[in-house]
Amino acid sequence: MKKRSKALSGFSWLMLVFLYLPIAVLILYSFNESRINAVWSGFTWKWYISLFENRQVMQALTNSLSIGLISSVLATVLGTAASLAIKHYSLRWQNIINGLIYLPIVIPEIMLGLALLILFSQFQVDLGKATLIMAHTTFSIPFVMVIISARLADMGKDLEEASQDLGATPWQTLRYVILPLIMPGIVAGFLMSFTLSLDDFIISFFVAGPNSTTLPLYIYGLVKRGVSPEVNALSTLLITSTVLLVIVAELFRRKDSKTIPY
């Protein structure tokens, strides 16, 4: 019995190594002096410095941040509004709306990218930042709704009913009871959308135009040309910001839903 559990924990640690080793190697080599091979030849910051001096990289960063910000604000507002309204619909409509929400999550990502490309070309919309914002908002809305619906379900009906018993109108209940209670969920949804947008490659690949390259698209262009320390440095920056955002979002999502957060 003891031996068995030793083997199990050894295997699990091995899996953790499998998950993290490639990422660790990538990060490590972004600080390697040598450009050409895998031999370690000294620590340097120079690849990072050269990134910040590269105008294309800075442009891609600006694009990523602005597209991420606008699309996640839109997705959060639309997703929150729909989650609040959904329970007032008949069961049949709730099922239709839920289907509409979960479908984009379960179908392969490439489908949404292609379908949007077809849409934009049919209506002769030029590919660029606007199409990226529309695409990112579309794939983020379902994630926001999943997070907020979970929060609403967690909250229960007690406080809402108490508020109504005390004579509050549905709008007042919404404004002064429900919204403050789900605020951590809204923040988590916003951060999640921002992360999804910042990180997205597949869908952006199909709906970006020549002047709207985002960071992942720029990285793809470099990756196709081969391994280089600049790609490592840029990837490291993307990894770091993604991980930080996810952890912060997770902290918000786990905030106790039974207490009013002020």
Partner: peptide
């Protein structure tokens, strides 16, 4: 959460 592209590149 880290994107596919970066993880494949690693």
């Amino acid at each position: 959460w880290i994107n596919f592209l970066v993880r494949s590149y690693a």
